[in-house]
């Protein structure tokens, strides 16, 4: 028997989660986009959503944030403002896996203090999902994906609840009166053939240097960077400095960068280490499927399907693993 939250008590759980911070969940915005936004009423939640346009990485790595301030007297100083606590409700297993990957990048080895501050402000409530034609995560149907405080396995009548952390257990304790006990129906992990093909290809070290898809992709890539902007594990950033008009104080900012942009490999003096779109696409491929630096050998593609869904010219790097006849154009 496992704790079960009947669907009609979801509003009570949301109200209770307010103790841990402002609750954000998947909603449809005025312009028709699915996004994590503040929710107070469970009626706003799109529990059947597939994927948000922008992944939850924006709560950990905002598109642009101030990381340091400078003044002539104090030099460079980290921001000492506390990040307001947030509860992210309804993250799917792919996005949870994405956050677990970002945690490895920014919290193992050299700790990124801005990321840590943003991460510590989050309480994460996972939600099971129904994959669509773009998904290939292979993790759907799992009882408790890594990285969430609490995971809700959705059934027609409500949710089986599993705690993943101490904080999750605390939430369970505080909301025990909302739960009933039910015998869980066996869930079958959903497996996508593309996930298998990617695992096999990566295990063999395949980079497909002679695959004609590279040229076809490079020919039609617009360099818009949408695939990277909406990727839950793309974390490249650029560092900028903005001087105040007084010529004294300054702010050090960082903002999302994008390996599909020409400037990404460029250094002062005009040398560009990735001049062609083909080179830039291959850079992205290598990072996603093979990993860089300390995370060499770790696949960071979580199968959320965002890049395949948003690319305006239907470039799908994962198609390399399936053979050239899988190019959708």
């Amino acid at each position: 028997m496992r704790p079960f939250l009947p669907e009609e008590r979801l509003g009570s759980l949301l109200a209770l989660l307010g103790h841990w911070g402002e609750v954000y969940g998947p909603v449809t915005t005025g312009d028709g986009v699915t996004a994590f936004r503040p929710v107070s009423d469970p009626g706003q939640l799109r529990l059947e959503y597939r994927r948000t346009l922008i992944p939850p990485k924006r709560f950990l790595l905002p598109p642009r944030e101030t990381i340091l301030t400078y003044s002539p007297d104090a030099g460079y100083q980290p921001l000492d403002t506390a990040q307001p606590a947030l509860v992210l409700f309804g993250l799917h297993p792919c996005d949870l896996q994405g956050i677990a990957y970002l945690d490895r990048v920014f919290l193992e080895g050299v700790v990124d203090t801005s990321y840590r501050r943003n991460r510590q402000a989050l309480t994460i409530i996972g939600l099971s999902c129904e994959p669509d034609e773009f998904c290939f995560c292979g993790a759907a149907g799992a009882d408790l994906p890594a990285g969430c405080d609490l995971f809700l396995q959705r059934t027609p009548a409500g949710f089986f609840v599993t705690a993943g952390t101490m904080k999750g257990e605390e939430i369970c304790d505080r909301s025990a009166q909302l739960f009933t006990l039910r015998q869980p129906a066996g869930t079958t992990p959903w497996h996508h053939p593309l996930a298998d093909a990617i695992c096999r290809g990566c295990a063999a070290g395949e980079t497909f240097p002679d695959n004609p898809l590279w040229d076809r992709f490079a020919e039609r890539c617009l360099g818009c960077g949408a695939c990277s902007a909406c990727c839950p594990t793309c974390y490249c950033y650029d560092v900028l400095e903005q001087g105040g008009l007084d010529g004294q104080a300054a702010e050090r900012l960082r903002e999302w960068d994008n390996c599909l942009f020409k400037s990404h490999g460029e250094v002062a003096g005009g040398v560009n280490f990735r001049r062609s779109r083909r080179e830039r696409l291959q850079y992205r491929f290598l990072h996603k499927y093979y990993g860089f630096g300390a995370l060499r050998g770790v696949i960071s593609c979580v199968g959320c399907g965002r890049c395949r869904a948003v690319c305006p010219v239907e470039i799908d790097l994962a198609a390399l693993f399936e053979g050239e006849d899988h190019d959708r154009q």
Binding site: V239, D257, F273, L286, R296
Partner: peptide, 20 residues
């Protein structure tokens, strides 16, 4: 030489193959 913005292996501008 590469475009190295962070210095600590985070910003991912400077990969040569899988090496940073």
């Amino acid at each position: 030489e590469r475009r190295m913005k962070c210095g600590v292996g985070h910003c991912c501008h400077c990969a040569l193959g899988q090496l940073l």
